[in-house]
Each structure stands twice: as C-alpha cells, then as structure tokens.
Amino acid sequence: MEKSVATLDEGTTCTSWNYCGQRLATGSFNGFLSIFDSPDPASSSFTATSKIRIHEGGIVKIVWIPPEYGDAVACICNDGSLSLWEEIAEDGQPLQWKLCETFHSKGSTVLEAQFGVIRTSLKMVVAYSDGHAKVYELLDPFELKNWQLQAEIQNVIDSVSTFGKASCFSASISWNPQLNESQEPSFVLGFNSDTPQLNSSKVWVFDQAHHRWIPVAELALPLDKSDQVFAVAWAPNIGRAYELIAVATHKGITIWHVRLNPDLDGRLSLEKAALLSGYEGEVWQMEWDMSGMTLATSGTDGMVRLWQSNLNGAWLEQAAFEPTS
C-alpha cells in the first residue's frame, strides 16, 4: 500500500513538494537546503541532486514559488528571516541555486509566507510575529529580487480595534487556489497568538477599485473568535457555487462554506458546514486534494486522517493512517 519515495538526511526539519510533485525541497536544522529529483517523470524514487547551506541556523519552512516564475523556494529560518532562492543558469554559468532576496523585519520574525498568482503578477503574503502581514508584489517576472510592498495589514475585521503589542507563535495563510482569473485575488489568514482579535481566520480580498486589501469575512462563530488558529486550507473549487475553507483550532477542524458574492455590506455569506473532531492536540497541516473533495490532515498525535463529505453534506473521517516502524 505504501512505498518509500525518498530517504531524508539526518536533521531534516521540513519538506515541501513543488506544483507537480516532481521535486522535493527539504530544510535541515543546520541550514542546509536539499533538492530531490527523480530520473524521469514516471519514476517515484527521489534522490538528492543538490545541497547548499543557506543559513547558519535551522530552516523552519520551505514554500515553492508558483511554476510560472521558475524553480524557486522561499525559506523561513529559525532566526525569523525569509530568503528566496532560485535555481538559475546565468550567462555562461552552470545551473545553480542562488539567493535572490532576503526579507528581514525589525523587532519581529517571519512566521509564514505563501504565494498567489494573480493574472500576470505574483503576490506573496508574509505573516510576522507581531501580528502584521505584508503583501508583496513581484515587479519583474524574471527578477525574483524585485519585490514591492503592496500592503501591510493587521488580521482584524474591524480596523479601529486597538490592542497592545501582539506576540504570535504561528500563522497560517492559504490563497484561494483559483485558476479562473475573473475573481479578485483572495486569501485566508489566521494566527496563533496571545491577542484574541488577531487569531480568528479572516478572508482577505483585493479591492481592485480602491487598490487595497479588505477583510470580508471572519471564519469563526462569536464564541470562537479568540480561538488560536493552527492551520487553514482553502480548497480548489472545480464548480461549486461556494468556496470551502478548512480552519483548525483546538476545538477541531471547521469546514466553512463561503459564498464569494458579497452582500450589500460587502461581507460574504458564511456557513459553518461541519466541525470535525478526533484530534487530541494540535493540527499541524491540512491539504485538500485536487478536486477539493478530500481533506488530508496531520497533527501532534502523529496520525494522518482523511475527511470527506457524504451526499448529505455530512463530513466524516474516512480513513486514518498511523505511522509504525
């Protein structure tokens, strides 16, 4: 049933597959970035083809840049920096991984970064430990070093709310994985912090007319608003009239139906479709399959679980996998 596709070096701390599942990037506790490739697309055996040290400390997270912009990864390191590395062959030189850009922020660390392709531009949302998120835009598709700060946002639905200095432990971002270019770009952002207002997941949509990002929906019931968010995942939509977004908190995984046609107030209509329980502890990761029908999750209990909705719209755990040696 299961087969091994790659063996990872000692000290590997994170892994990430590219868009087509043909390249694997791994990061290690001592700052090495390794890239795994397979000899041909039919093979499912991956071996390391390059390994470079990109940082003195450890790599915490790796995210691939969308393929329209080449083979590049964003690495978040344990000192809170974010750096972009690209595989490129510059004039007359062999193919190699090169540093394009490093993002530092005074007094805060990078917790999470995710990319979204919108029409002809690449956008990157970076969430910081102070509760802020920045949206960057790539200026030249061939130059991954030229980023422009498009917006700086605070994850609150009401811009007048005030609170003290926030301290966030983790952040979760998921772009709307749309292929349809008629929709405005949107993403969902949630925090795991000591500041209740920041925590709940909010859907952010780019308002083309005013050229700004606005929070249009808060994915939490009134009593759950301060719940710390561990993970968010926006499902691919292959024809539903509504979007599916999964949000994990300590209460479980909530599946939200979000209709993207805003009402008169500009808010989206929301429906809490299910609360999936079964986890003891924290959800680490949630991933929707290509059809947006199956949600895979992993968490502190070490289990991998698969969730699906039946024809009556009831979400059920369909299977679980327990790692055993």
Partner: peptide, 9 residues
C-alpha cells in the same frame, strides 16, 4: 537517517 517520504495509494 533523518526521515522518510512514503507514498500511499
């Protein structure tokens, strides 16, 4: 070894 990636069909 530091870890493994397994594929489940």
């Amino acid at each position: 070894i530091g870890g493994k990636v397994v594929e489940v069909n």
